[in-house]
C-alpha cells in the first residue's frame, strides 16, 4: 500500500502493465522525455525506452490513428490526448475507425486501445482545457467511456481498460490529479468496466455522480445528513458507457428520490440518459421528479467565472432539497 495521488496511481498502472506485457506502449505529445505535461507518464521512458514511451509530433489524429494501426498489429497502445479539448482533432479517427473497426472487419480486427485524456474544470486553465464532453464518446457505439473518481479507482480501472479487447476512452479529472491521496495497493488491482458502486449508504435520497463531481456530491450528502437529518445514498458510476443501471435502480427503488450531478452541460447530458433509465425501470417507485445539478449549456467560462459554472456543494444541496421536499 502506498499513499498516492491520481497522477502517481495512473503512472503505477502504466508502469506495471508495461512490465507485464510488452504489447503495451504509451504515445502522445510530451509523454516521453517530459513525462507528460501532468507528469502522468513520468519515468516510463527511462524504464522502457523511447520505442515504448513515444514522443509524437503534435498530431492528435495521427496519434489516435497510429494507435489504431498498432492495435490491429497486435499491440496495446495507451495514447494520451494532452487535453480532452484537443481530442476533437482526432474525433474522426475515434468515431470513424477505433469504434468501428471490429464491426467493419466482422471481428477480425478488434481495437484494444486506451485513449487517456484529462478533462474537466476547476484548475484555472485556458479555453479548451476545462470541458467535460463524455457524452460525445458515450453516444458513440463501439466505445467504452470510463471516468474514475480517485487514485485507487483510476489505477484499477486503467489496468482493466488496457486489458480490455475494445477501445476505452479514459477521462482523468485534472482537478483530482493532485488534490487528494488514497491508499493504493502495490499488487495488481482491477475494477470491472461497466460496474458502478455505492460509496455511501442511505435510504432517503439517491445521489448519482462520477469523476470530480463525486467528491462535491459526497460533501453535499454529509451536509444534508448534518443539517437536514436525511441519509443520502451516493452512487459512483465509474463507467459512463456501458452504463451500469443496476446499482442506482436498486437505490432509487429504495429511496424514491434522486439527484444526478455532473459538470457536463445539461441538455442531452449523462443525467438525461440516467433519468430515462429511471423512467424505464423505476417510474412507479418515484416520490418526486428527478433533479439534476449540472453544468449549464454554455461554454465553460474563463477561469474567473468557472466556479459559477461548476456544480458546487451548495447547488447540489439545493437540488437535493428540491427532490427531498417535492
Amino acid at each position: 500500500m502506498a499513499d498516492l495521488t491520481m497522477v502517481e496511481a495512473i503512472n503505477l498502472a502504466l508502469r506495471q502493465e508495461m512490465e507485464n506485457d510488452d504489447r503495451v506502449l504509451v504515445l502522445g505529445e510530451d509523454v516521453g522525455v517530459d513525462g507528460g505535461v501532468f507528469r502522468v507518464t513520468d519515468g516510463l521512458i527511462d524504464e522502457f525506452g523511447e520505442e515504448r514511451s513515444i514522443d509524437t509530433p503534435v498530431a492528435e489524429a495521427g496519434i489516435v490513428g497510429m494507435s489504431i494501426g498498432m492495435a490491429i498489429y497486435g499491440l496495446r497502445p495507451v495514447c494520451e490526448m494532452q487535453f480532452s479539448g484537443f481530442s476533437y482533432f482526432a474525433f474522426h479517427q475515434v468515431e470513424g475507425h477505433a469504434a468501428r473497426m471490429r464491426w467493419r472487419s466482422r471481428g477480425r480486427y478488434g481495437i484494444p486501445m486506451v485513449i487517456r485524456m484529462p478533462y474537466g474544470g476547476g484548475v484555472h486553465a485556458l479555453e479548451h482545457h476545462s470541458e467535460s464532453r463524455e457524452v460525445i464518446y458515450a453516444h458513440t457505439p463501439g466505445l467504452k467511456m470510463v471516468i474514475p473518481s480517485g487514485p485507487r479507482s483510476a489505477r484499477a480501472l486503467l489496468v482493466s481498460a488496457i486489458r480490455d479487447p475494445d477501445p476505452v476512452i479514459f477521462f482523468e479529472s485534472k482537478l483530482m490529479y493532485r488534490s487528494l491521496r488514497e491508499e493504493v495497493p502495490d499488487d495488481e488491482e482491477t475494477l470491472p468496466i461497466g460496474e458502478s458502486r455505492v460509496v455511501r449508504e442511505g435510504s432517503d435520497l439517491t445521489m448519482i455522480s462520477y469523476g470530480a463531481m463525486l467528491h462535491r456530491t459526497l460533501e453535499a450528502a454529509e451536509k444534508l445528513s448534518e443539517d437536514d437529518g436525511v441519509e443520502p445514498e451516493v452512487v459512483d458510476l465509474l463507467t459512463i458507457s456501458p452504463l451500469d443501471d443496476r446499482k442506482f435502480t436498486d437505490s432509487v427503488r429504495k429511496t424514491g428520490r434522486v439527484v444526478v450531478v455532473h459538470e457536463a452541460p445539461r441538455s442531452f447530458g449523462p443525467a438525461g440518459e440516467i433519468m430515462a433509465r429511471i423512467n424505464e425501470r423505476s417510474f412507479y417507485y418515484l416520490e418526486a421528479p428527478v433533479e439534476r445539478v449540472t453544468g449549464f449549456d454554455v461554454h465553460v467560462p474563463y477561469f474567473a467565472r468557472e466556479q459559477a459554472y461548476l456544480p458546487d456543494v451548495d447547488r447540489i444541496v439545493y437540488g437535493a432539497r428540491k427532490a427531498l421536499n417535492a
Partner: peptide
C-alpha cells in the same frame, strides 16, 4: 495513419 501504426508495430 493506421498504415503508419501497423508499420510502427
Amino acid at each position: 495513419v493506421h498504415a503508419v501504426g501497423i508499420a510502427y508495430g
